[in-house]
Design a protein around this nucleic acid. Structure first.
Lengths: 129, 129
DNA sequence: GGTAATAATGATAATAGTTACTGTTTAAGA
DNA sequence: TCTTAAACAGTAACTATTATCATTATTACC
């Protein structure tokens, strides 16, 4: 694992992700960090987010549409995406090892992991139907 | 569902996806269709692929990296992605309804589906390790 | 503490993938 | 056949992200 030189900006980005549960985009993080470091550039945010992902301090979530999201919660869990408002919430559910085994049974290669997103309507959007 | 006017180009795109199992990108489809329609434009391919997805005649696969892939196989199934070569193969495995129920138990909204990709090494890449 | 080496920065340009626009062509129904 | 509206090819524009580069900040060593 690459050794990084300390940077105030990266610490701030990491702290930002640790304290929020809304799975922000790079741009959301950029806007937040600008409160503290008005001159930070979007490129710096992207670079540091990717570095943090490499170091395993942050997770990146890629859905099929829109920008990537970032998650400071490291415990293994799934995500739920609201089809109506796009909100992303954590599901306190351990990733299923059994699912990997099921896939392994019908796969000619070696399965080592899976990525799952659940879809539906969140509590708030259910009310407005 | 929107009613579409017939187009030779769209038929050709659909036929292309029905006959191949390699989950091509829009650009792959574009190159293939150009054999028959040398003047087709990439925009037309994208527009028709999206129309076919809307009509439910084709599925779109979005991984976190690289361009989207398209799948003419409509039966419910999962996909396996090789980390080494990027090849995508179908897994003859029914999407798990039980997994949705598990997620529902710990979700405050309504879960109606999930999207799962399995990762690992394909048969060919396992040999070259 | 001072200083040299080098990694990180801000600003900006470049890129990949995709969608939008525009004038022309084509399908479909009267 | 004629009319209308959708689809087309070609191209510009857009979104999200990465790369480049001169400047600044961090670290290690004296």
């Amino acid at each position: 694992m690459k050794i990084l030189k300390y940077s105030r900006q990266r610490e701030s980005i990491k702290a930002c992700l640790m304290t929020r549960r809304d799975h922000p985009t790079a741009d959301h993080v950029y806007l937040a960090i600008r409160e503290e470091y008005p001159n930070i550039s979007l490129g710096t945010v992207y670079r540091n987010l990717n570095l943090l992902v490499e170091q395993g301090e942050v997770r990146k979530l890629s859905f099929g549409y829109g920008p990537d999201r970032f998650d400071g919660e490291l415990s293994p869990h799934y995500h739920f995406v609201c089809r109506a408002c796009g909100a992303i919430t954590d599901l306190p559910l351990e990733p299923s090892a059994d699912l990997n085994q099921q896939a392994q049974r019908c796969c000619s290669g070696r399965v080592d992991s899976h990525l799952t997103y659940f879809y539906g309507l969140c509590q708030d959007c259910l009310k407005n139907v």
